[in-house]
Nucleic acid binder design. Structure first.
Lengths: 196, 196, 196, 196
DNA sequence: AATGAATGAGCTTTCATTCAT
DNA sequence: AATGAATGAAAGCTCATTCAT
């Protein structure tokens, strides 16, 4: 009996694989260059293809950026899902996991703010981003399931953590380690407040 | 008897006035364009002068951006100072004032995040920004004067409010009014948490 | 049996051809404009391409200028090599050949002085120029092989010929032909002096 | 009895004085900046006046440059006149004086080549330069008064010395002192040749 | 006579994107 | 499917020069 995968499916998979390769390359570049200085050529070179080839997989630069971001969003959503399902102190662990993740994956955090602020995106891409945000917020909402205003608390916490990142990410005169430590303490502060 | 204002003073004042005109023009542009797409020509046109003329008043684009931001920062610091000194509920009023201000002055909020993230600034400008941030944080710190961890609480609140702005500023599918209302509720939520 | 030229070779050749086209265009412009007023757009237009395209072949303006000059330098070095190897009166023929070449290729002569004076070049480019100058001087040194101070004589002659070019190139009120004739006579004068 | 100088004369003198001040300022700038990077503002600032004011004394930038050059030319012509009239070895002393002067007054040497090559001058200015060159060449001609081809020898020597300057002015990898020494030796070589 | 504010043209360089091959 | 050459728009910035005061 033939494999269930049709020729169409194969093609689709291959295309997805290629996209993944490009996105991975993009991430590597994001990690070493200020976000808005990353060029298509940078990414193409890192991926080992030509710049023009990227346009076979992504309609334009913004689309690539959005997809790269979504991949990271998926990852963090997955992490939170797991933690919330298993942790003894989901609130605390969520806070730390989230902060740690963004700290370690600077590009995602910067992409996130980029999209929240500057981006001039097509409705299509906006929808995709919103959907991801919604799903991320869903995780936070679970943390306050027993509260009447769960959604508000979730939004507040999510916003607060984003704010911590953006505000103290470049804390002047502090080393990376010190920044991390400071964020940790702010995370703890927020934990105490939100666990009231 | 000599006039109180010397010729020097007059010149200085005129120069400052002109700077203000340019900054005001810049703000108007910031309000309608993604921040990092604003060009010197845009601003010049809006200000009714030539692009080259701007360089008489600001050494370069970044300097103009920073000064524009600082002007707003001064304003908000002044507002908070007054409120904290006179309000019966300084915490609550600070939260609302801050959120309202940023909401009304979208450009400032966007500039703030721009500087926090992308900017490639000269040490000189960075110092100016840091000093403004410090002074702003000082206001927040006053709110928690009676707490042992006043500074941490201040940082947390400041970060949280920034986060609220950045996260829900473009809340998808909501009108400006709805966004405002949502932020209000998040502000209230934070107020309750921080007043524990 | 494989073709002697690989695909790589072909590509390389094409790239070199294109560079040559651009350089040729540049020369045509150099011939009609003061050297430091030549713009990339001028050259691009003359070459029938866009200004941006030039940057595919030359890292920047200075690199293009240097390569243009080196091409001429190679040519003249080659000519002198041949003459010195075969001529019955190498000194005389070198003098005339050199003066004639520079006279006919005004741009090269102007480039040479440009680099000797104004240019703000990268070390890399400076090295290339120096190497070319050294090789050119080597030819002149051969002319005085039997003298104890061959190098000094070579330098003196080379410098003198350059000086003749720069000094009388624009001899006021003289036609091109008259200028040429005057240089010829100066060349002869130098020949007699240097053949003492 | 009244002074012979009329009011007109006084005005003229004052104007000339002012021009001299500006030219002196220009020279000081030429000494520290590549010739074609000197701006009117640079000069104005150094002269302690506004950029606009310069245009009261010089019709445009080129005119200022030319006059600055002419002043130096006068100086060197004067020096040569004196030397030729008094020296026991006028040829030798002329060679060394000329080389030394240009070596010490780098800006003049660079201006000279600038005018010989790039400049886009008005006929008026060209005339002035030509007249100065003629007078300079006259000095060199005196050196060969006893020769039948005095003018040719004069032109050759003048050109050769210019060539020495331009060619070895930036002799790669040599210190200023070494460059000077090398030029000295080339000067000596030329002396021996031209005194045949 | 002098200022200095303003202009406006112009320059190099970068880059997303397109398209013939 | 992929290349890579080419485009063309744009941007920041500089500067000689002008002119109202």
């Amino acid at each position: 009996m033939k494999n269930a995968k049709s020729f169409q499916d194969l093609k689709y998979t291959e295309k997805e694989n290629k996209k993944k390769i490009i996105i991975d390359a993009a991430e590597r570049i994001f990690a070493i260059k200020p976000f808005n200085q990353v060029t298509m050529r940078d990414i193409a070179k890192e991926a080992g293809i030509s710049a023009g080839a990227i346009y076979r997989y992504f309609s334009d630069q913004q689309a690539l950026f959005v997809e790269a971001f979504l991949l990271g969003a998926e990852e963090i959503i997955g992490m939170l899902e797991k933690i919330i399902a298993t942790s003894k102190n989901p609130l605390k662990d969520t806070i730390y996991t989230f902060l740690n993740y963004l700290n370690k994956h600077d590009p995602y955090f910067r992409m996130m703010t980029h999209f929240m602020l500057d981006a001039n995106l097509s409705p299509d891409l906006i929808d995709k981003l919103n959907e991801a945000e919604r799903r991320l917020l869903d995780q936070f909402t679970k943390l306050f399931a027993s509260h009447s205003n769960a959604r508000l608390l979730a939004h507040s916490l999510f916003a607060s953590l984003n704010g911590v990142m953006i505000t103290f990410h470049n804390y002047p005169g502090r080393s990376k380690k010190e920044v991390r430590y400071h964020m940790h303490r702010l995370g703890e502060t927020l934990y105490q407040l939100f666990s009231c």
